[in-house]
Design a protein around this nucleic acid. Structure first.
Lengths: 224, 224
DNA sequence: GGCCCATGTGGACAGTGTATACACTGAGTC
DNA sequence: GACTCAGTGTATACACTGTCCACATGGGCC
């Protein structure tokens, strides 16, 4: 497969370093990533990495983007699986809700199954940190977050959400799902069995979906 | 105040180290804490810390427990402030909901106001990681989490929540509030203005409270 | 065929956490 | 009042880290 391991020039070092970083981050997360260990795993001198990345942070960020795409792929698989199992006669409204459930469950299940990669992927989310709090549809939006926005737009289109309910609905959803994933990864639920986490995660997803489609109480809008 | 700074023995080094760690973690969070820097700030040699703590992690954890208590205190202040402003004739049900709002808003506001201490306090939450997912009432429960459990029990006592709705209600609540705080601290909302974060945080809190008091749909219980 | 430049190596430096051995001091005891 | 001793802080050293600099290598292009 590889042309010649003992040759002076590696030939394909950049992806090899990213792969090595992903391997090491799978157990131990991004915190345990050291430059020297990554380059050692790739069979190369520490400084060789500086020909392909600005510094360690840049290398880790490149690996984090790969992890983020794997997270998005897992979410898409979860969505498709739920849609395949869903009632065909549930209509557009049912399909939209199922899609939103898939977004949340996919995110949570990826965090449970691959906590190291999940933590790694989180490093990419503080990038598009400027501008509107409600992220507009442009190329800067991370794919996992875009899946959420699409699902919510579907719900609004299917009239499961009123236009007023749609506004800022992504933040309660993302907060609940991300918060649960974080607790399951490095918080109080870290050492729970996967089945327990899966059941609790489904509960969280169902409660937040119920919450965003609940009519806004009169007392809330009156707050300062 | 201090007896003699130039004396050979510091005299009160352990709390001085914790204070120095809190000072340094206030900007930079727990990730930026170095033993040598902490001891330097306390005017002492690095190895002096080993007379009072097992290692750096133990020192950081001791500071994290202080930060956790400050978080709980901020939450209690928020609860009391909301209760003082609330309608007196809202009854026990209204007071219970207000208390739950205070738990969530207090947590979020502390994270916004003191992100470094907030991240530090999170280190204490993976301690009681064994046993039941629904944490039972014992001395091991972190004070902030206990405030949530109490508020939910109040809501159940006031019949705002049915006994069925009360079960595991702490996890959707904690997930949403913690998830938002995490995003505001180190996630996609990191650089948003405090007023924006405060408004979005209130929205998240209101939506999750609506979600846990929503009747459980028939389709949810039928899931495998 | 010779050169060039991207790529990898080697050595060095400042910084880290921590182990081990030593120095100082204050309180308690004969 | 001198002695001891446990508690506390210091000094030195080691392995490790990320990163800078100068040098070595060799494949592709003129």
């Amino acid at each position: 497969m590889s042309p010649q391991v003992t040759s002076y020039h590696h030939g394909d070092l950049r992806p090899a370093l990213i792969d090595a970083a992903l391997d090491l981050a799978r157990e131990g997360g991004p915190g345990g990533l050291r430059l020297r260990e990554i380059t050692r795993a790739a069979g190369v001198t520490p400084n060789a990495a500086y020909r392909h990345f600005e510094d360690l942070d840049a290398l880790v960020l490149a690996a984090a983007q790969v992890a983020q795409h794997r997270l998005a792929a897992a979410m898409r698989e979860q969505i498709d699986a739920l849609l395949a199992d869903a009632d065909a006669d549930a209509g557009a409204a049912g399909a939209a809700v199922t899609r939103l459930r898939g977004v949340g469950l996919g995110y949570i299940h990826f965090a449970i199954a691959e906590p190291g990669w999940f933590e790694l992927a989180l490093l990419t989310f503080d990038q598009h940190a400027s501008g509107e709090p409600t992220v507009t549809v442009d190329a800067q939006v991370p794919p996992p977050f875009q899946l959420l926005l699409d699902a919510l737009d579907d719900m609004a289109a299917a009239s499961v959400l009123t236009p007023q309910e749609r506004v800022d609905a992504e933040w309660p959803c993302w907060s609940a799902v991300h918060g649960f994933a974080d607790m399951a990864t490095r918080g109080p639920l870290k050492h729970q069995a996967p089945e327990v986490l899966s059941a609790l995660g489904a509960h969280v997803v169902d409660r937040i979906i119920a919450g965003i489609s609940q009519p806004v109480a009169a007392s809330e809008s009156a707050e300062p």
